[in-house]
Amino acid sequence: MENLDKYFDPQGPFASLRLAQMKRAWKRSNRRELTFWEKTYLPMLLGGIWLTSKHFFYNLTFHVLHLFGLYKEVPGAVTYQYPEKQRPLSSRLRTRHRLTKREDGSPRCVACMMCETVCPARCIEITAAEHPDPNIEKYPAEFILDLGKCVYCGFCVEVCPEDAIRMDTGKLDIAEYSRENMIYNKKRLMEG
């Protein structure tokens, strides 16, 4: 607060108003003048190097121990080596879809068109057909899901009355060389 004169011109317009304003702002900001020791920049510098060096030597120790096969359960880094090792997924995470099956291996889906209707991205396209079993009424002759359009909102799973579609495959790395390959049909969806 002592050095307010540096920023304040007492002859300027609305001087008293601005002075009061600046005093309030200074009070709110909880700022203080730096001490001489802080102004030399050394304590922060040394503190920073102390912190990074602590991490450096901790990690180095465990990397060296890993070379000798010791303490493998303590990681030397917080990162995951991705393509080789996937990080654990939360069980409620929405990943690629799959169509669930009945005991005889046919799809549980009854082609009620609920998911197709609710889908905000309009990526689901169902072709319904009559099921030979009179108790089931309909089944999907084809179930097409365009993952290139899908927004992973999970509405299709929420809305399904038969628990026929789920997003629990744990597959996140869906990458293809063409848009056509991103379109999944019934066979690919049922493979899981």
């Binding site: 990074t52 060096s53 991490h55 450096f56 990690n59 180095l60 990397h63 030397g76 880094a77 917080v78 990162t79 080596q81």
Partner: peptide, 10 residues
């Protein structure tokens, strides 16, 4: 490598 170790990376 040094920057990686300092930042908990590999």
């Amino acid at each position: 490598k040094q920057s990686a170790l300092m930042q908990d990376r590999i």
